[in-house]
Design a binder for these strands. Structure first.
Lengths: 147, 147
DNA sequence: ATGCCTGCAAAATATTTGCATGTAA
DNA sequence: TTACATGCAAATATTTTGCAGGCAT
């Protein structure tokens, strides 16, 4: 029935290995959420969206568990947290260094294409501090909607 | 008693003018909060901090009003919202284009010094969108605390 | 006078936590 | 078997909202 879903069929074994390599016990919720998250290329997703997708895909997990899982995944480097908004948090399955567009009215995150990644390096940290990361979020608005 | 507070003495008239120019009615809460926010140079401050300072300075305002005021100030360009954290929101009294350091463990925001502001321009927006702003937040950690 | 503003409490939202139960190693 | 994970509900935290009364123009 899901023949048109390219990578959702990542084998269970692959997911198990990936979780184990990250030092995580491959439990049912983790495996099923990993399939949702990593089964179809890079994604930007909120907990709310994960919850909806899980429900749609007959993946039974509590909200608290989704939070536990994505937070754990983030700790071990399987996900990257993207802070774009005071409210909702997004998680990015692409953990490599790159920047983001954020479409305000759609609450949607998009990657800045690699060609434009030249957005400089982090400025030198003040004395006594070290840089642990840089978040660049370019906020977008849909242009003049005909109205 | 407060002889060592350089600009806190911004005259009420100046504050009134500033609010009026921004199209805001100069009410007591707005005037008093404006004095806290703009009376001593550039600041990065959270609502919680404003609340504390207000209490300390005998400025009586409800929490809801603080939110109303900073949100209104932000709308009219008197403040700039800085989104550094999924949780708390910070407001910057320096509304010109510049970037920020965020010290994670201290929940503190610092300006990136002007010399290092070369952190590039925003990448071109995708078709159909326009750039409305760019937030660059460099996350810092205090370096190896002797322990 | 009129409309915008304030204060309070309650609501809405997002995320975390405590604890009993379940399960991977 | 033992430590770690899950599920549920309640707790926490932040911000917004509804509404009655107040104040600037």
């Amino acid at each position: 029935m899901n023949l048109e879903e390219p990578e959702l069929g990542v084998s269970r074994a692959v997911l198990l290995r990936r979780l184990r390599r990250a030092g995580l016990r491959p439990t049912r919720p983790r495996i099923e959420l990993a399939r949702l998250l990593f089964g179809r290329g890079h994604r930007h997703i909120s907990v709310e969206q994960i919850q909806t997708e899980a429900a749609t895909s007959d993946v039974i997990v509590s909200l608290a568990t989704i939070y536990n899982v994505v937070n754990r995944f983030t700790e071990v480097g399987l996900l990257r947290e993207v802070k774009v908004d005071g409210a909702r948090t997004f998680f990015d399955t692409n953990t490599s260094a790159h920047h983001h567009f954020y479409v305000e009215d759609e609450e949607r995150v998009i990657d800045v294409p690699a060609e434009h990644l030249k957005v400089g390096e982090a400025p030198p940290a003040p004395e006594g501090y070290e840089v642990i990361g840089m978040d660049v979020v370019v906020r977008l608005r849909r242009v003049a909607p005909e109205g």
